[in-house]
Amino acid sequence: MKTNVAILSTVVVSILLILALCAGCTGSAPGGNETTNATATTTPNAGANVLRVATTTSLENTGLLAEIERVYENETGVDLQFIAQGTGQSLDTARRGDVDMVLVHAPALEEQFIDEGYGIDPRCIAYNYFIIVGPKDDPAGIANMSAVEAFRAIAIAGTNNTPGVVFVSRGDNSGTHAQEKTLWKEAGYNYTRDIQDAGAWYVEAGKGMGDTLILTNEKKAYTLSDEGTYLSFKDRLALVPVITESTELMNRYSAIAVNPVKYPGVNARGAADFINWLISDEGKQLIGDFGKAEFGKPLFVPLYAPECTKPPFNCTCAEPVPA
Score class of each variant (00 low, 15 high):
A143I: 05
D115K: 09
V99R: 06
N128F: 02
N74Y: 02
A143T: 13
E69L: 00
D138G: 09
G119T: 06
D137C: 05
V133D: 08
E73L: 03
A147C: 08
G117R: 03
M145Q: 12
R95T: 12
S146H: 06
A126I: 00
R96K: 13
V133W: 06
G119H: 09
F130A: 11
T76C: 08
Y118I: 14
G158S: 04
T93W: 07
S90C: 09
Q89F: 05
N144V: 00
D98I: 03
T87L: 09
Q85S: 11
D100T: 08
T87C: 01
P139A: 11
S146A: 03
E149N: 02
A147V: 12
A66E: 12
Y72C: 08
E75Y: 01
E75A: 13
A157V: 07
V148K: 00
V102W: 02
D115C: 00
G158V: 08
G77D: 11
P135Q: 06
Q81P: 00
A66T: 10
G119D: 12
P135K: 03
L109D: 15
F130R: 10
A153M: 12
V133F: 09
V104H: 05
A94I: 13
Y118H: 15
M101Y: 08
H105E: 15
M145K: 05
C124T: 05
A157N: 10
N144F: 04
M145N: 08
T93F: 12
G86M: 04
G63P: 09
A157W: 04
Q81A: 12
I142F: 07
I83R: 11
H105G: 14
I83A: 13
E116P: 03
L64C: 01
F113H: 11
C124P: 03
V133M: 07
S90K: 00
T93P: 02
P107Y: 03
E149F: 02
G97R: 04
A150Y: 01
D115L: 11
N128S: 10
D115Y: 00
G86T: 07
L65R: 00
E111S: 14
L103P: 01
I114C: 03
N128W: 00
E111T: 12
R95C: 07
V104W: 01
T93M: 15
L64M: 12
E73N: 14
A140G: 05
A66Y: 00
D100A: 10
A94H: 11
E75D: 15
F113C: 11
Q81E: 14
V99W: 10
N144M: 02
A153P: 05
R152V: 00
P139S: 08
V148P: 06
Q89P: 08
G117E: 13
G117V: 11
E75M: 14
P107F: 06
T87G: 03
R123G: 07
M145L: 15
G134Q: 07
R152D: 08
H105M: 14
G158N: 01
N74L: 13
I83V: 14
T93E: 13
D137Y: 10
S146L: 09
Y118A: 10
F151Y: 15
Q85H: 07
A140F: 03
A155F: 06
A108M: 01
P122K: 04
R70Y: 04
R95Y: 04
L103Y: 13
P122L: 11
A66V: 02
A106F: 04
E75N: 11
I125T: 15
F82P: 12
G77V: 12
G88K: 02
A106T: 06
G117H: 07
C124F: 03
R95W: 04
